[in-house]
Design a protein around this nucleic acid. Structure first.
Length: 754
DNA sequence: GCCCGCGGGGTTTTT
DNA sequence: CCCCGCGGGC
């Protein structure tokens, strides 16, 4: 693997080899651009940091450099997206600054904002002890709003409305903009729900995740003394993963920038994979326009072997509108990238599991050197099965987060309700959980009585005179509930959070309830609750704060308790999104098929396809030494077998850096023909034919199938998502990238195959 | 008020 | 196929 032309396309950046002594890879010192990035501390700076270019090192050394040059750590703020990144940065900064107290703010955007708001929320007509709502709470509140408007969750899914609301708020917009921007009936509903949601949120004295950012922006923008306080204190500001910032975060950063404009943002446009969530890559150019920063590019990759980098570059360089960048490495080419064509998803999983097993048997690698990536969570299942069959320890990352689990939320809701009597979502959650005979009828009656008496519901329930107005049976049950609330309130006020949680588990009857339920999940749930107590204890010890409200803040913002580094001794499984920021010696990127990765919903939309491509780039650049790419010729999707072409990304990888992997004994379902010899990477042509022949049936009707691309005279190109009914009554749900989802009657739509 | 069974829907998700 | 949430029956 030597002097072959590395890239067929003229636009692809060259990869420079052997430009730098090998020791650099082993023990990295600061290279020239890195040193510039560290030492340029005056005025605005934009660091374009390619994958694996030592970004974290640069940020931490910058902090150290500032401190050594007389800037007090007290005046430094660094903003990240994840708690993990913040923790790592904090730890490494304190290592470098041995012994010095690092009282900088190194935290996520959200916790920095929460901290700011806890101090001054009263200026926004919020109590300082407002509650933070997560996506689940938000969804419950939206459902309540829908009900209030006489609408159903069916026609307007709360989750979908929630993400629309979030998208608006991330762009700094509210219900008024929503109303102005939409005219169609469906969206009028959206604006009304949005409006009511905002009103009810305020009434509940709660903020959702997006509010934490948006309200901080309002606070800083409209209250000069507050803004002055922060811009005076923080003379040096740093922002990590700048490509992932949304509109509101950009505004926030701008408001926090002091008069000296010592602001440094770090990011990589090629790793922007959260555009769908409101991230605006345009913030890079906005930053350049607003600040005229110095620009430093970190282009030397210290992570991946040469071939991996060449392949990754080849994939991402097909995107247009990239920042000019030439990522290179001083490392050797390393092994060729292995491409495996599996018969189906079971074969794919076995190939991966067996490859890992034989590498382990050779003794050269340990369990935690392996990672398996997939595009969607549902793909994890077959890998779990295969690994389990091989007796290989594994751990899945992502998925349901600890603090999002039902049992955890059920218990914490008691304290949220007690600490904020206006938080109806939390209170309603616990009124009859576990079931104690206080049903909807009783609650409705109580709500009326509460309104009449001008009391929040939870206080009304504790008011004997009010409860006595209920029927005898109901009032007894409500009294019992009030008693629990009273006890928990007392212990919350007097004792550490751990003890309060402990007594909630027994007093509310939650543990007994779980014990009685003879379900298989009950055991895990109880273990999780035990873990909740541990978490409260641990939080108190590390933060020196035993109060419930502090723990609740922690729980709502630090939502993933799992830490990849701490899970030694297991193969790691995760979606590509979750893999961002991590690295592993041996990586398997799986499901590389048209409609899986790139995902079907991205096909036909250039912007979304660009993001899929970056996603692939992120996945590949996680690998240090060995990269396996796998795809299956057929795969069960929603229980139905489907044939998919190899992903077009496979075709983008220069043949010179990869080889077909056929060396392993694989699991062979009947009909397996052995590994293919012919080149499998033909540039993908748009898949628009109904899968035929041996393929299992896909839902079809009159020449149309789910996933098929079609052309409509008004809406142009779209992808069929759903087919309802047959013949004359056949209705097609089609997603048009430019117009959104439309339901059309086949007979009248005049559709053509794309 | 509770529980089971049906039906709908299923991309990614740092906080 | 598999998970969820709602509604109807008990």
């Amino acid at each position: 693997m030597d002097d072959l032309p590395l890239f067929s396309s003229a636009t692809a950046p060259p990869v420079l080899i052997d430009d730098v002594p090998a020791t650099v890879y082993e023990k990295p010192e600061l290279n020239d651009p890195q040193r510039l990035a560290v030492e340029n501390c005056d005025g605005p700076l934009l660091i374009l940091a390619g994958a694996g270019s030592g970004k974290t090192r640069v940020i931490t050394y910058r902090i150290a450099h500032l401190v050594q040059n007389g800037v007090s750590p007290f005046r430094i703020m660094a903003l990240t997206f994840t708690n993990k990144a913040a923790a790592e940065m904090k730890e490494r900064a304190s290592e470098i600054l041995r012994g010095q107290r690092v009282n900088s703010w190194i935290s996520t955007f959200h916790s920095a904002c929460l901290r700011i708001l806890r101090k001054d929320a009263d200026r926004l007509n919020y109590p300082k002890d407002f509650t933070v709502y997560d996506a689940n709470d938000q969804s419950r509140l939206i459902k309540a709003c829908l009900a209030e408007l006489g609408l159903t969750d069916k026609e307007h899914p709360a989750r979908q409305l929630g993400s629309m609301i979030s998208r608006y708020k991330s762009a700094g917009k509210g219900p008024v903009e929503a109303e102005n921007e939409y005219r169609a009936h469906r969206d009028e509903v959206f604006a009304r729900v949005f409006q009511l949601y905002e009103t009810n949120l305020q009434k509940s004295r709660c903020m959702d995740f997006d509010d934490l950012l948006a309200k901080t922006v309002t606070l800083l923008r409209d209250h000069k003394p507050v803004r002055d306080y922060y811009t005076d204190r923080f003379t040096h500001l740093m922002v990590d993963e700048f490509q992932d910032t949304n509109g509101v975060q950009y505004d926030l950063v701008k408001l926090l920038t002091g008069p000296d404009k010592n602001i440094c943002v770090v990011g990589d446009d090629d790793q922007s994979i959260y555009r769908w969530r409101g991230a605006e890559v345009g913030n890079f150019s906005r930053f350049e326009r607003d600040y005229h920063p110095k620009i430093i590019k970190l282009e030397q990759n210290y992570r991946s072997a040469g071939n991996i980098l060449k392949a990754a570059n080849a994939v991402v360089s097909k995107n247009l509108d990239r920042k000019e960048k030439k990522l290179w490495t001083g490392a050797d080419d390393g092994e060729l990238i292995k491409v495996y064509t599996a018969e189906d998803e079971v074969d794919e999983a076995h190939f991966v599991a067996n490859t890992i097993k034989s590498a382990l048997n050779e003794g050269s690698r340990s369990l935690n050197e392996f990672a398996i990536f997939y595009r969607t969570n549902s793909q994890s299942r077959t890998f779990e099965d295969a690994l389990r069959r091989n007796g290989t320890a594994y751990k899945i990352f992502g998925g349901l987060k600890f603090y999002d689990r039902k049992e955890i939320k059920d218990i914490l809701a008691w304290f949220k309700a007690i600490l904020n009597p206006f938080d109806l979502v939390s209170f309603k959650r616990i009124i009859n959980t576990p079931p104690r005979g206080v049903g909807t009828v009783t609650v409705e009656k109580l709500e009326e009585l509460a309104v009449e008496n001008g009391l929040p519901l939870i206080h009304a329930i504790e008011d004997e005179k009010i409860v006595d107005q209920l029927s005898l049976g109901a009032s007894k049950k409500v009294h019992a509930l009030a008693e629990i609330i009273g006890k928990l309130r007392a212990i919350t006020e007097s004792s550490p959070a751990v003890d309060a949680i402990g007594s909630a588990l027994t007093e509310t009857g939650y543990l007994t309830w779980l014990e009685e339920e003879e379900k298989s999940e009950a055991r895990t749930r109880m273990e999780n609750l035990q873990e909740l107590e541990n978490a409260a204890e641990e939080f108190a010890q590390t933060n020196g704060d035993t109060t419930m409200s502090a723990f609740l803040d922690h729980a709502s913002l630090l939502s993933d308790a799992d830490n990849v580094d701490e899970q030694a001794g297991s193969v790691k499984l995760m979606t590509v999104h979750v893999s961002k920021g991590l690295e592993f010696p041996m990586v398997f990127v799986t499901g590389l098929e048209d409609k899986i990765f790139p995902h079907a919903r991205s096909l036909g939309d250039p912007a979304q396809m660009g993001e899929e491509r970056r996603l692939m780039y992120v996945a590949m650049t996680r690998a240090r030494e060995v990269l396996h790419l796998t795809h299956a010729r057929s795969r069960r999707i929603f229980g139905v077998g489907q044939r998919n072409k190899p992903s077009e990304f496979l075709a983008d990888i220069p043949p010179a850096v990869c080889k077909l992997d056929s060396s392993h004994p694989v699991y062979r379902p009947t009909g397996y023909e052995g590994p293919r010899k012919a080149p499998i990477y033909k540039p993908a042509v748009p898949q628009n034919r109904i899968p035929s022949g041996a393929a299992a049936p896909v839902k079809t009707e009159g020449g149309f199938a789910i996933g098929m691309k079609v052309v409509h005279k008004t809406f142009q190109v779209g992808v069929i998502r759903k087919i309802d009914g047959v013949g004359e009554k056949c209705r097609l749900t089609i997603y048009f990238p430019r117009f959104g989802e439309k339901k059309l009657i086949k007979k009248f739509a005049g559709l053509l195959q794309a």
